[in-house]
Design a protein around this nucleic acid. Structure first.
Lengths: 141, 141
DNA sequence: TAAAATAAAATCGCACACGATATAATAGCG
DNA sequence: CGCTATTATATCGTGTGCGATTTTATTTTA
């Protein structure tokens, strides 16, 4: 059989597997603060700067609006964020944090350390991985 | 704001983004042979060795049976694979390739080159990425 | 300025992904 | 030998992801 068609020789499969593994590591840790991984990413984007438009958030996370719209709606239903139409341009929806969403940041502060610990890998490997992945991501787009 | 809670300083987000980017690169290429990325992975597992039990396939792809069972059913509905209960042990379902599934391998032979080309990255970077990711994956589990 | 083009969100349909639970069959053990 | 534990799949519910289409609002252009 063509070696190229073997799972072991594929690069893409390990990346796909690692990505799911990462989400699985986050799951129990984020469950304690009632967030999923994509929801946590949205919160990080908003903790950094707010309000932001729906598409600004989607662009930062590389998420299509078929994904981001229902994601934000679930987060609004949980009371983490609020959605307001921009009065100047009625097409735009501005996403802000609620008081509850702001307060969650304190609890979330422990997440990164917990994740590194749960993954059981060295910060050096993590940094090397990040640099390489970012390099490839930039070239791939 | 705590630097650790910034998207840019997170390692996990680039991996998650790259994984989705990879699937997006595969999508149009696999569309030509009417496969999704997870379906393509299953085919690779079966082209290498056949028949295999449901869980053998799931273990190789790190997929839960809540994922793998419906995935295999969709593939059976497409006529790519067949599902037979093992007569010795009626709990086991053996997955085999149909004639159509076997023949697909020829068409799939071009997929790896097409993907490398579409991603626009060097084989060296790819290999380096793979080694690093595999190393981390092994430690993380 | 009215019609066409564009832009921002939302909606729809389908395919994962996974935890939790259910179901059925076999294995193991007293 | 029957009863319990285990094993292999299947099922269910929820939450992504994404392409395609739709809706509404704004901008451009003839």
């Amino acid at each position: 059989m063509d070696d190229e068609l073997k799972l072991k020789s594929q690069v893409c499969f390990p990346v796909y597997a690692l990505s799911r593994e990462i989400v699985n590591v986050y799951r129990p840790i984020l469950e304690e603060i009632d967030l999923t991984y994509p929801q946590y990413l949205v919160m990080m984007v908003l903790w950094e700067n707010e309000p932001q438009k729906v598409n600004e958030i989607g662009d930062k996370l590389n998420l299509d609006n078929g994904t981001i719209t229902p994601l934000l709606k679930r987060m609004a239903a949980k009371g983490l964020i609020s959605r307001k139409r921009n009065t100047k341009d009625e097409r735009v929806v501005e996403i802000s944090l609620t008081e509850s969403g702001k307060q969650l940041q304190t609890k979330a502060a422990e997440v990164p350390q917990k994740v590194v610990k749960a993954m059981g890998i060295t910060p050096e490997d993590l940094m090397q991985l990040k640099d390489l992945v970012v390099k490839i991501l930039n070239r791939a787009k």
